[in-house]
Design a protein around this nucleic acid. Sequence first.
DNA 1: CATGAATGAGACTTCATTCAT
DNA 2: AATGAATGAAGTCTCATTCAT
Lengths: 223, 223, 223, 223
Amino acid sequence: MSTTDPSPRRRRKEARPQELLDAALELFVEKGFAATRAEEVAVRAGVSKGTLYLYFQSKEDLLRAVITHNLSERIAEGAAQVAAFSGSASELLRVVLCEWWEHIYNSPAGAVFKLVITEVRNFPEISEFYIHEVVEPAHHLLGGIVQRGIAQGEFRPVDVDVAVHSLVLPLIMICVHKHSIGACGMGEQHSLDGNAFIRQHVQLVLDGLCQPATRQPTDDTPP
Amino acid sequence: MSTTDPSPRRRRKEARPQELLDAALELFVEKGFAATRAEEVAVRAGVSKGTLYLYFQSKEDLLRAVITHNLSERIAEGAAQVAAFSGSASELLRVVLCEWWEHIYNSPAGAVFKLVITEVRNFPEISEFYIHEVVEPAHHLLGGIVQRGIAQGEFRPVDVDVAVHSLVLPLIMICVHKHSIGACGMGEQHSLDGNAFIRQHVQLVLDGLCQPATRQPTDDTPP
Amino acid sequence: MSTTDPSPRRRRKEARPQELLDAALELFVEKGFAATRAEEVAVRAGVSKGTLYLYFQSKEDLLRAVITHNLSERIAEGAAQVAAFSGSASELLRVVLCEWWEHIYNSPAGAVFKLVITEVRNFPEISEFYIHEVVEPAHHLLGGIVQRGIAQGEFRPVDVDVAVHSLVLPLIMICVHKHSIGACGMGEQHSLDGNAFIRQHVQLVLDGLCQPATRQPTDDTPP
Amino acid sequence: MSTTDPSPRRRRKEARPQELLDAALELFVEKGFAATRAEEVAVRAGVSKGTLYLYFQSKEDLLRAVITHNLSERIAEGAAQVAAFSGSASELLRVVLCEWWEHIYNSPAGAVFKLVITEVRNFPEISEFYIHEVVEPAHHLLGGIVQRGIAQGEFRPVDVDVAVHSLVLPLIMICVHKHSIGACGMGEQHSLDGNAFIRQHVQLVLDGLCQPATRQPTDDTPP
DNA sequence: CATGAATGAGACTTCATTCAT
DNA sequence: AATGAATGAAGTCTCATTCAT
């Protein structure tokens, strides 16, 4: 109802790319890139086959757009949180991870993880983009917090990379699970979704990070 | 049943299905099921296109065979270990997880995780098989150990499922990573492969599980 | 019919069909009818795709218009020349052919020859039009001159049709060449364009036509 | 019934490329490259759509093969004739041109002229091939004969290139005509096909070339 | 009149599968 | 049992044409 209300035709036009990207993400995650027909994407977006090609040069181009579009949005979110926070490293990690989690798990971004894992070997440029734009920034951010925790004596002097991975990999795995096995409707037993797990998981690893005294020799006696 | 080897030609013939399964696993993991051509599988297995169809009714049938064949083998391995073991729950988990890990990570079985994640939604019967034959047995096994650890006072009374997932999800995620992003040759920085991580990760979570005294209020954390 | 020019905008509008016809001729000759997109024609004419369809019912209709429009103009030109001429048949042929040549070779009409050759078999009505409106009038005109030359003892009693074809076919072929192989920019060696050839070619055939004795000085003084 | 009679299947296979090339030449000349569907070619060759692609990578590749295949064959034919000939330049030209003519006009090679003219601007590599493999050899051959005729006083000192073109262009034009306008079945009036024309045309131009005195009678007596 | 977003028939090309050899 | 030529359904992409603005 704004005064600059564009015509319906024009409004449709501006919304098309996003509608197509959304439909494509859904279908690519659901069936895989190669098994999704371009026309399916178009139909789910409410347009015809030809219209898809007004906005994307090829199906492959659409895939790239889906990934970059959905990842670019969420990238900088965490950094702001961290900068504005004051408190213990534990608390900061808990906040950052859980907040991130809720944003990502319940948004298209979560699906992108599965998409990247599924398609990256056929489109190597995706790998580059994903590592530079997602993996490295996130790893750097979390690694910094862990590092700080260690420096301040809050955490034991563990391997920073290991700690970050122990914290983060289950989060990603659950996103992936949600969009693969978890979407097969095999009952709720192994649902393992839900934010409940994340909170407890983070707590569990933080417990492992914090405790100073009771320590086993950390040896890794080979078999 | 004779001890003498069959002729090379005969041995070759009997090995065909296995060679086709191996080639199919490699290619399905590398390019995805839909993007892999039946002839590619045949060629990599050293036979012709037609031969593939002497052993498998269809490409889809080949996919099912790849998954069931590679998973069925590894299923019972762990149970034996556990039964024969006496020691602390921590020690048992460490041994079981690390031993499993080495077997799976460096074998075709690791690739199957990626394959299952990638293809389940197009072939729901895979989900059923995977959950019944892999997820449930493994979860039951590990959950039992954790349960025992709690009952014996070795572990704090955590949620068993959470603990199992915290322990196991990174292992699976690393398998998946190895066959997706990790296979893109993007430098060694984010390699995160290697058994080193697993040992430290398991230790870290076990630390979180064991510690009795120094505890934060664990619960709470309002949304 | 007023002597005052219409407004630029109005003139533009009235010129649209001609601009579209010109653009279409260029492109149809350059790429062929089937390989030329309607939008390309529109763009080269400086209008939008939709506008093309305001003036022509279909792409095929446009092709017909291109041909009839460009051929109709040049048809009657020669007849007038002939009627007003007094002199030998040789001289008349030389004048008519060379004059025609310069008009046609350096005008869109030359391109139409290639277009007709290229597209007739897909649009048989073009054949009818072309034969009735171009081939027959021209053949009749030239044949008449040759006939007169024979009757007057200036030419030997050759087959009139043969003589006409020997005179004319190279002219057409050079038009066609200019718009096919000659437009590929393959160097100037086999350019064979240029009015020089035509003059000498006509002279050569006229030499063959003329009675043995009555030979002219074979001058080919270029302009 | 030779002893090395291959199986029917195999015999088919070896004949396929030629059958496809023949069908393609017919259709490309008839309808143009762009307007011919790949499946039409396949059907006319008696195979299915897919089979075409077992022998040619693409429709474009098929076009190139059609042209090179049909032109390469006829290239060297003339040179042999010339080498083996002794007699006047006039006689040699008459023999070479008329013999060539019969070979080319009544063979697929004649159709290729129209095809080249029609498609060359969309596939510039055709131009290169055609000029190097057809135009230049043929022009060189005929130019040599004319040159010799002039040197021996048989011909007047005309421009060699002009003479060659005057002789040859009508032949090519008639080939082109046969496969364009001539194929539209517009009655026999303007048929202008037939070897009759060629003989008379060559004679007419040769008459123009010969020294004034030395007219038709095979006599000579140069000045 | 003019535009250009939208459509969908249709063309090229691929590939799972069959079957004669 | 093994092959690989052949098929044709199906998928990607194009483009002539329409029509709301």
